[in-house]
Design a protein around this nucleic acid. Sequence first.
DNA 1: TCAAAATATGGAGACAGTCTCCACTTGTCA
DNA 2: TGACAAGTGGAGACTGTCTCCATATTTTGA
Lengths: 189, 189
Amino acid sequence: MTDAKPLRADARRNRDALIAKARELFASGCFNLRFDDFAKLAGVGTGTLYRHFPTREALAEAVYREELTAMCDRARELQATLPADEALESFLRGFVDHLHRHEGLARTLATLMATQSGALAEGAQALGQVINDLLAAAVRTGAIRDDVGAGAVMMTLHGICAAYDHPTYRTDADGVITLVLAGLRRATP
Amino acid sequence: MTDAKPLRADARRNRDALIAKARELFASGCFNLRFDDFAKLAGVGTGTLYRHFPTREALAEAVYREELTAMCDRARELQATLPADEALESFLRGFVDHLHRHEGLARTLATLMATQSGALAEGAQALGQVINDLLAAAVRTGAIRDDVGAGAVMMTLHGICAAYDHPTYRTDADGVITLVLAGLRRATP
DNA sequence: TCAAAATATGGAGACAGTCTCCACTTGTCA
DNA sequence: TGACAAGTGGAGACTGTCTCCATATTTTGA
């Protein structure tokens, strides 16, 4: 899982250049560039690009790895400082908010979640883990029901990510979170 | 929208052959066939295939058009015979059940919903319409909240469709529907 | 019934991306 | 500083998509 061999200096430089250029392009909404052209733009050869990132997804994951990590950290922080149900709500609302501002992240997450092929979905798994934890904590306090798993919540988030370019994105995404939260809330008997 | 010109006899024959073969392949889980090879399999030339179906999505939509129509009819039937909230629940549960048995449909719907480019998404729009109607009826009877639109529900369904090949698909999808229904239910004040 | 007009066919080949391969360059280590 | 390991880049093979048009089939209407 963790990088076994430290990269040679020049290799590291190239890798960083690739990620930097990709981040820049993603941020400007440019996602469908020819892979070979992208290599040229980043100032490296095609072979080098492919050696570092065998697929588009691998590149996207590298670009958003940090961002995703930050998101997971935030979840853990919320969990440590708020009551379980508030932490959950706060995280989900913040998630949508963040996605709304970062189309590239939404697009990437949609792809990563769809890719069930283990290795590449590492980032998505990390996200799944923190949601799992948030839910488990809220179940423990009795704030939410225990008969619906994190998988279901992830599925709704997948739907949210996949719709990143719909015109009514924000409203609908907020609606989904509202439904999920209200649906999770334990019905007072 | 509706077919303006009646196809010539041979053209109709070819079109039908293409749809029939595609349906057969989809049913056997074969989705990523080379488009040219597919033409050969159906016994027509590449040009003919492209004339009838300019894209994979166009073909997929044609294949599932009937199935989607049947689904919409079912919704209207439920709406005519059951109380609004039961109709909604019944439709959504049935939707997941159907998807679970027809991976091809799930895959197609996921694509169609993602494609926001008008024309191709016709099938998805029809689905959106019936859900809209089901929700509106339930809102009118006061059974469900009125501050979350059909777009949000569609988003969750998109998530369900997109995850058609996850190992825990069925459980999670059922969970999503549970959340959506419970979330929609008007909280008794 | 048949010729002309309209419509449709098919598959060769142009084209656009992807990805590999390996002779060469650069970095590291003793 | 030399030798070995690690990394590079880009030409070109490869794969799938899609167009084009000479040819074939169907329809029309006289």
